[in-house]
Nucleic acid binder design. Structure first.
Lengths: 218, 218
DNA sequence: ATGCAACTAGACTGTCCAGTACCGATGTGT
DNA sequence: ACACATCGGTACTGGACAGTCTAGTTGCAT
């Protein structure tokens, strides 16, 4: 029920065993993301990973455990990708330019079929797996806005932004940049994910509003 | 698969029949919202509505048809509630005051357990029922932003707002006001729905940013 | 009150699925 | 090359569920 069970492969860690384990994880990821928790059968996972059902159960004690493992791992990897080091505002001395790059980076990483499917899956299972959703929230939007808030604090201290409440500014920036695209993609499917050009435009426009409120006049 | 079948009750519209029909719809709404499409059984719906399974199938040809009916009807009713006539900016001659009321109204109507559950349900079923999700998108956010765009057009014509692209301004206003609360409620569950006081604050803060970008200086 | 449509109860079919059991085959470390 | 853990195939158990069927019951309109 909870996030756990990330301790190597429990049985012998022979090469074969971990190869199988990976195959199972890959197949399960694909099927769960496509068909949801209840819509997925363990037989399908076994078949798709070219592994016997027995082997699946040797690695994962139950469907639920496998599901939790998949979602946790995807969530973590995604979070790390989003928050890989962003070069902290070097020669792009222009705040606007820097924030535009920052926003576009976030948007383009998040607006991926994979991540959209994960979000839909987790949201659809909120009542069955509230812990998974909470973790996704914390490792996702919350973490992103936390880092943004830190950034804005710094920029405010440097006199480059007029930010009184960094957390609030982070919320505004984050959603000015991402909300429309995200909401569209969530409901209209992966085909509604904006093109890079559209993403850039959304970031520019959102940033303009943000700077009107939080920029320093010069 | 598609939205249809809203023509009275197909069999004789005796009082009893329509009473049963309503009971079924009520029970099905509750169960589907709670347990999702696959997680719901027709037996449970029958039991909860104190009706025999046979009667359920006399009114709705299949589980899928019942589901579509429920979701469509909920979507429509919600859309109508959100877009019931808003007194068009009378004595509250102040644009800010008016927009604050407008925003708060939207937020407080949308941030309801019922509607959050509906959104989660539909999002979780995007790949199984893409039409339902599309309808929810159109009757929900798209419609709201459409009306906002009209409003902004008018206000711009009256010289009360500096809006060049009403649709874009609508997107910004909508998400500045709603995104944070909505995203939180989607992932953290109904208990994370902000209190009215918090909602008011979010609207005020979002509106301030909006007006910094789109307000007319005076 | 009477006839008929609508309803109830529950059994039933066919299918699907999580999880287990068994056994013969196979790859791995030594 | 050998021994043994691991694996594949497959069948099985127990239970759930969509949808159907039947036979008897109930409530509504006339």
């Amino acid at each position: 029920m909870v996030v756990s069970d990330r301790i190597e492969s429990a049985p012998g860690s022979s090469k074969r065993s971990s190869r199988k384990r990976l195959a199972i994880l890959d197949a399960a990821t694909e099927v769960f993301l496509r068909d949801g928790y209840l819509g997925t059968s363990m037989d399908e996972i076994a078949t798709l990973s070219s592994v016997s059902k027995q082997t699946v159960y040797k690695h994962f004690s139950s469907k639920e455990a496998l599901f939790v493992e998949i979602v946790s791992s995807l969530t973590d990897r995604t979070g790390d990708a989003v928050h890989a080091e962003m070069p902290p505002m070097q020669e792009a001395g222009d705040v606007a330019t820097y924030l535009e790059a920052y926003g576009y980076r976030q948007l383009s990483i998040v607006l991926t079929p994979r991540i959209m499917q994960l979000r839909r899956l987790v949201i659809g299972e909120v009542s069955r797996f509230p812990d998974l959703a909470r973790v996704l929230y914390e490792r996702g939007p919350q973490r992103a806005m936390g880092e943004l808030a830190d950034l804005f604090s710094q920029l405010a201290a440097d006199g480059l932004l007029a930010v009184k409440d960094p957390a609030m500014a982070a919320v505004h920036f984050n959603w000015l940049v991402m909300a429309q695209a995200l909401n569209q993609a969530m409901l209209l499917g992966d085909d509604a994910i904006p093109t890079p050009a559209e993403q850039r435009r959304a970031v520019k426009e959102g940033l303009a509003v943000f700077l009107a409120a939080y920029g320093v006049k010069r």
